[in-house]
Every structure is written in C-alpha cells, then in structure tokens.
C-alpha cells in the first residue's frame, strides 16, 4: 500500500520560498513522474516526501497516516539517489543487506531476500564485489536492490539514470518499468528528461518554480496542455508556438502546433517557407523552416525518405483539429 497525500505543503530555505503551497495526491501503485526545468524544486519536493527535509508548513499522509513529523526511516519509503549513494567499503551483498540488518531481520531471511533481489536485477555474479568495481548500470541496480529488499510503501527515484549513457538509459528505463509492473508499488520518479517522463509515467506532474502547472497522464498532457508552459515543455521536438496576426486569425494570442501535425508538400499549402537546418533521424526527418511572418522558424516532421535541400521552398498545412489555442493569460482556450 502506498497512497501519498500532500496537503498545502510549503518549503522555504531562509527567506526564499522554493515550494509555494502545494496539494498533490499520488494513488497507490501509481508511477508518478515529476518533471520540470532545472531548479524548479523537483528534488526538494521528493526530499520533503522522503522526510530528508522538514516541511515549512502543511502536512503529509501515507495511507491515511499523518507522517508530517515522522522521521525518514519510519515512513516506509525507499529512495534511490542520483549518485547511487552506495556504501563504498561494503560488498554488494552487504550494501543490499544493510537496511535489513538495521531492521534486525534474521540472517536466513536476509540471504533469501538478497538472492531474490540479485536474481531479479542480474547481480548474482557481483555479490562479493565492492561498488567501486562495478559499472554505472550495475551500481544503479545495486541501489535499486537495496531499495527493493525493504519492501517499501513507495519508491522514490531522484534522476536515477542521469549518470548513464544513452543506450544503458533506455535499458534501465525498461527495467524500472518492468519492476513497477511486477511489484505494483507506488513509485515517484524525478527527471528532467521528458522522454523518460512520457514513456514511464502513469501520471506526470509538471512543475515550474515549485508550482504544479499540470497533472495528468502522458497523453492528456500531450493532447491538452493546460497552458503555454506545459505546451512548450511536453513533446519532442517541442511544439511550434506562433503569436501575432496568424494566431489572431484563430481567435487566440498564441497558437501551438506540433511538428508531427503539420503536413508538408513541395507545391501547395497554407504556409510557405525556406528550409533551414534538417535533422535526419532515419525514421523521420525534422526540418527547420523559416516562414516570413513568423518570429521563430517552424519545426516540421516529414517521413524519413522525404528529402528537401536547405534553401528549398516548401509548403505546409497545419492539422486544424490538433491545433492548440492559448489566450492572453497563457491558458488554453477550449
């Protein structure tokens, strides 16, 4: 069980309020991802939940139990740190055993759980090594193993994959998702990588300067961003945002259209522009197109085989049904 409720919590460091009053409920078994730009308070929020920082005000419940003043060890949460925070002088086995040793679990049970965790995480061959003798991915798995054996009410991850290379990151992303499906335990995951957020999350919480901008499933956020910030933050490459007369035509201050919702043609379309930089990804190609009346170049997607040269003039037609309109206050116009 692990339903976490935050009621009106705030956090200030000295005079600086990093988290203004914030409410959030994380359902049992849910995979929740906190995303937001650097310095927006994701780690701080996670550490508040973990109990590693004291809340300035507000209160927090886990499964209906008020844990506002409960120390971290007694909250029943396990955390995986960005630096892994393994104990360098202990073997992998001892690292994984550490929380059980602290809880006074008997030796036979400890061994059984270590074996099980090591088997699940592909660590059997490394149990007697020190963390210093492992690769980044293996260290990450040890850190996860140490969290699993505690059988926590919820797992907290703070950018666990940011120290890994791209290929490994994709692999670990899958492993963590599979782990979540198998354990069905609540997980809270902090990242600023929105691919991780989109692929792993049941629920994404978008933060900006400590304020929750939107909460929803990845597709909700993709289809109906609540405001300009979320529109620009979710989606890769990011949504084209156009202001001025073109937006006014649609009765909005800003209109947004994703690169994948613009049809490209060599000879006819609503907008015409000159091709600038092209990014070939193989499956797709993204073109940066300079359109005369627009302040910024448009990004458009074309299927992989299509090839325009830099300097060519091409024509584009937005899919009106998938266009997003935003008013003067930056909020979405339904």
């Amino acid at each position: 069980m692990g339903r976490i409720t935050l009621n009106n919590i705030t956090k200030s460091f000295g005079d600086v309020q990093v988290i203004p009053p914030l409410d959030l409920t994380i359902e049992d078994g849910e995979f929740t991802v906190f995303v937001g730009p650097s310095g927006c308070g994701k780690s701080t929020l996670l550490r508040l939940i973990a109990g590693l920082e004291d809340m300035t005000s507000g209160h927090m419940e886990i499964d209906g139990r008020d844990v506002t003043d409960v120390p971290p060890a007694k909250r029943g949460l396990a955390m995986v740190f960005q630096s892994y925070a393994l104990y360098p002088h202990m073997s992998v086995r001892k690292n994984i055993a550490f929380p059980m040793r602290m809880a006074g679990v008997d030796q036979a049970e400890q061994d059984a759980k270590i074996e099980k965790a090591a088997a699940a995480l592909n660590l059997i061959d490394y149990l007697d090594r020190r963390p210093g003798q492992l690769s980044g991915g293996q260290r990450q798995r040890v850190a996860i193993g140490r969290a699993i054996v505690r059988e926590p009410a919820a797992f907290l991850f703070d950018e666990p994959l940011s120290n890994l290379d791209a290929a490994l990151r994709v692999g670990m992303r899958l492993e963590i998702s599979e782990l979540h499906e198998r354990l069905e335990t609540t997980m809270i995951y902090v990242t600023h990588d929105q691919v991780e957020a989109m692929t792993m999350a049941d629920k994404i919480v978008v933060l900006r300067a400590g304020v929750i901008e939107q909460v929803g499933s990845p597709l909700e956020l993709y289809r109906e961003p609540r405001n300009l910030f979320v529109a620009g933050f979710i989606g890769s490459p990011r949504m084209n945002l156009i202001e001025g007369p073109e937006a006014a035509k649609h009765g909005a201050t800003h209109i947004g259209i994703r690169p994948e919702h613009i049809a490209v043609s060599p000879d006819a379309g609503e907008w015409a522009g000159k091709v600038g930089v092209a990014e070939h990804l193989g499956s797709d190609t993204f073109f940066h197109v300079h359109v005369n009346d627009f302040a910024e170049p448009l990004t458009v997607r074309a299927p992989g085989e299509v090839s325009f040269r830099s300097g060519d003039t091409i024509h584009m037609t937005p899919d009106i049904a998938r266009m997003h309109r935003f008013g003067r206050d930056g909020l979405r116009i339904a």
Partner: peptide, 21 residues
C-alpha cells in the same frame, strides 16, 4: 558524500549506527 548518510538514514540507521557503519 552527504547522500550516503541520507541513504543510511532512510535505511533505518540511527545516528550512532551511521557513525559506526
């Protein structure tokens, strides 16, 4: 590394055990 101490704290080690281990 401060995160090691925090990890130990979350793992349920009280101050004296954090010192020792």
């Amino acid at each position: 590394d401060g995160e090691q101490l925090e990890a130990a704290e979350m793992d349920g080690a009280p101050p004296l055990k954090r010192f020792w281990f």
